[in-house]
Structures are given as structure tokens and as C-alpha cells.
Design a protein around this nucleic acid. Structure first.
Lengths: 145, 145
DNA sequence: AAATAAAAGGACAAAAATATCTTTTTTTAT
DNA sequence: ATAAAAAAAGATATTTTTGTCCTTTTATTT
């Protein structure tokens, strides 16, 4: 499972995709308030993302966080790997010391393919793609109303 | 993800299936040593399992933990639910507030079916079944040697 | 009946994750 | 230049999880 920090990070980045741009940046407090996330904790998380160039920031008046074109090529996996120890994906779901194709745990044959598909999805889904999907989704919603 | 306590519990119960019976009980320390699990922590966990009748125990000399016939009808899910808050299975994998068929997160269509299959497996797999599979597995290993 | 061995129970400690607060630095706008 | 606004950095606090220790209870064996 992802840590809260990781989930906050994903949620915040998703929020940035459609509420910010280089001209209109968002402060960590604004984001935290909009998403109901503990503000100082999110600030820390956003700092880490910035340090690893997953997102961008500018200090000072009218500063804040936003996504550059380069940032948008980052994937969901990049966000997660920035915050969590991704090695945990390799652990046996039931915590069995020995768990592999030869000696699989009870859910290995269920978990292993899922995990691989999941990681593949996380590694190929870019922020840009998610942004587009979100926009599309919202248009649909508008139309349906 | 399951907590360590849950994983320890599963590992210990699995160990009990093939190393103990009503005649030959196992102490929490023995189990902890054999499985390389922090002994007092495991003791606590085994107590909870006992309290909810997932496993059995007898105090005093030659006492210890074992599995009764009734215990063996318990499922993996019962073990997990005894230790962890199972509600977490319902949370969105990416921590999105709104995540359902109508407004799915990026991995919802991957995670949702997996989760359902997983829970189904955990709810139907009894301790007895696992015990049998383990025995079978070990016979095979013996034969192959 | 007494001694003993083991679980049960409770209090405590350490570590990790989450959350908060304060100070410093940097950038922008005035 | 100065002030202000915001990120960055660092220190601290809280909560949860994990891990340890000590005492009490209970069953078994002698």
C-alpha cells in the first residue's frame, strides 16, 4: 500500500494539472485547503517532489507550485518512487519469507500478475495523460448535466 | 497492505498447521524463534487470535498453541480481520477521495477486480486447505529429491 | 498440595509515519 | 532598496505501529 504522503502527492499533482500553470501557480496552503490535506505535511511532500524535479516551484510573491512541460512527462511511478520505498512492491503479499513461482503463497498467482500490471501502468501513465483524461472526463460531465 | 502483525499471524498459523496438534502444542517463543519473529510481539498477536477463537491455547506445563478441528475451518480472511482493520480494502489505491466506476482513478479498473478476487480468495481459503496444500507440496519436494 | 511452565494481561519503550511550528532564504513587486 | 510573499529548511510534536518487559493467572505435572 502506498503511504499517505504518496497519496497526498498524487492527489496534489493531479490538482496542479488542471488548476495551475506557469502563469498561475498555487501555494502549498491553497492546495492543502482545496484537497483537505494537512498543510505543513503537504508542503514537505511538495518540497521533495520539487527537489527531484517532478514538479516545479518559484519562491516569492506570486510564487508557488506548477507543472512545466517537462514535469508533465513524469509518471505516476515517478511520484510514488520520490516519496515511498518502491522495493516494497517486491514483498510477498502475505509476508511469507519464501514466495515465488516454485513455492508460491496462497495469493501469489493472483498478486504477482496484478502487481506487474500495476507497476507497468504506473510507469507508463504520465502526468500529461492524466491531465488530458481529467479534462475529457470533466467535459463529459458537463455535457451530461 | 497487510500490517506486519497480520503477516506474522498468518505465518505463525501456517507453521502451526504442520508442526503442532492437540497432543503437541507449541509455545509462542518456540514459534517466534522458528520463524524469526519478535517473540513478545508474536505472543500478543497469538493472544488476539486465541481470544477470537481463530486458534487454540492451553496454559501451564506442556501448554501452548495449536489448532483444533474447528479452528481449521477459519479462513485467511478471519486471521487478517482479527488483527487489521479490513475496511482499508475499500480505500482507493491512489488515495483519491472519489474513486468508483463512474469516476475511476487511473488504476481503479486494475485494482478493483484484483481486490475482489483477492478478498474472495482470502475468504474461501481455510486453514485446513492450506495445511493440506502444504503437506502435498512437501511430499512433492521429498519425491523430487 | 506444591512447583512449574506457559498463556494472559498490562505497562512501557522504540521506531516510523504523520502532523505542526518556526526560521531562513529567495524571488517578486512596489 | 525595501517589503512582502512564498518556498525551503529545520526543529519539534503527535500518533500509530512495532517491539520489550514484568506480573498475574491458570493448567499441568510431580
Amino acid at each position: 500500500m502506498l503511504s499517505k504522503a504518496s497519496k497526498y502527492a498524487i492527489t496534489a499533482v493531479l490538482y496542479l494539472t488542471n488548476s495551475s500553470n506557469k502563469q498561475h501557480k498555487l501555494g502549498s496552503k491553497q492546495i492543502a485547503k482545496a484537497l483537505d490535506i494537512p498543510a505543513p505535511f503537504l508542503a514537505k511532500t511538495l518540497q521533495e517532489l520539487t527537489k527531484k524535479k517532478i514538479i516545479s516551484s518559484v519562491k516569492g510573491p506570486n510564487g508557488g507550485f506548477y507543472l512545466s512541460k517537462e514535469n508533465e512527462n513524469n509518471t505516476l511511478f515517478d511520484i510514488i518512487a520520490c516519496i515511498d520505498d518502491v522495493e516494497k512492491f517486491n514483498d510477498c503479499y502475505l509476508g511469507q519469507f519464501e514466495c515465488n513461482e516454485d513455492k508460491p503463497c496462497v495469493v501469489h498467482h493472483l498478486y504477482f500478475p496484478f502487481k506487474n500490471e500495476l507497476i507497468n501502468k504506473l510507469k507508463t501513465k504520465t502526468i500529461l495523460e492524466m491531465s488530458n483524461e481529467y479534462a475529457h472526463n470533466n467535459n463529459l460531465t458537463q455535457i451530461l448535466k
